[in-house]
Amino acid sequence: MTSCPCGLTASYAACCGRFHDGRLAAPTAELLMRSRFSAFAVGDTAYLLRTWHPGTRPRRLDLDPDQEWTRLEILGRTGGGLLHAEGTVEFRAHYRHHGRDGFLEEHSRFRREDGHWVYLDAEA
């Protein structure tokens, strides 16, 4: 069994795959963030757009096929639980692009809309 790209030990199908295929919605902001990282890793742009707040979502999303997302670190979180309406997740997403390693560090904001967590934007 290969673990999920998000870094949790479950398989992709048992972890983020169940969110990507629409069987379940991520119950917390952190799990949504992890599932979005996995969506970048597997190239699931439909999921990324579906879980983006309609007020900040781009019309389309083109992923760079030469960028491989390799590892995710959760650095911190606030709110975003089962009883919250908003939450933040600070993370470091590692990638490899044209043979060079790099990372993206972001403090993302999430909001619950119609009972589902969505990505709102990133704080500077």
Rank of each mutant, 00 (worst) to 15 (best):
T2P: 15
T2Y: 12
T2K: 14
C4N: 06
P5E: 06
P5I: 04
A13R: 11
A14R: 09
C15Y: 05
G17F: 13
R18G: 07
R18T: 14
G22R: 09
A25H: 13
A25T: 15
T28E: 02
L32E: 01
R34N: 01
R36C: 02
F37M: 06
S38H: 06
F40M: 05
A41K: 07
V42F: 10
D44R: 08
T45S: 13
L48K: 13
L49T: 11
R50K: 14
T51R: 09
H53M: 06
P54E: 03
P54L: 09
P54T: 02
R60T: 11
D62Q: 07
D62H: 08
L63K: 06
P65D: 02
D66H: 11
Q67H: 00
E73P: 03
T78L: 03
G80V: 05
E86V: 07
V89M: 05
F91Y: 15
R92F: 11
R96W: 10
H98T: 13
F103S: 13
L104C: 08
E105V: 15
H107T: 15
R109Q: 10
R112K: 11
D114N: 06
G115A: 04
W117A: 00
W117S: 00
Y119H: 05
A122E: 07
A122M: 03
A122P: 01
A124P: 08
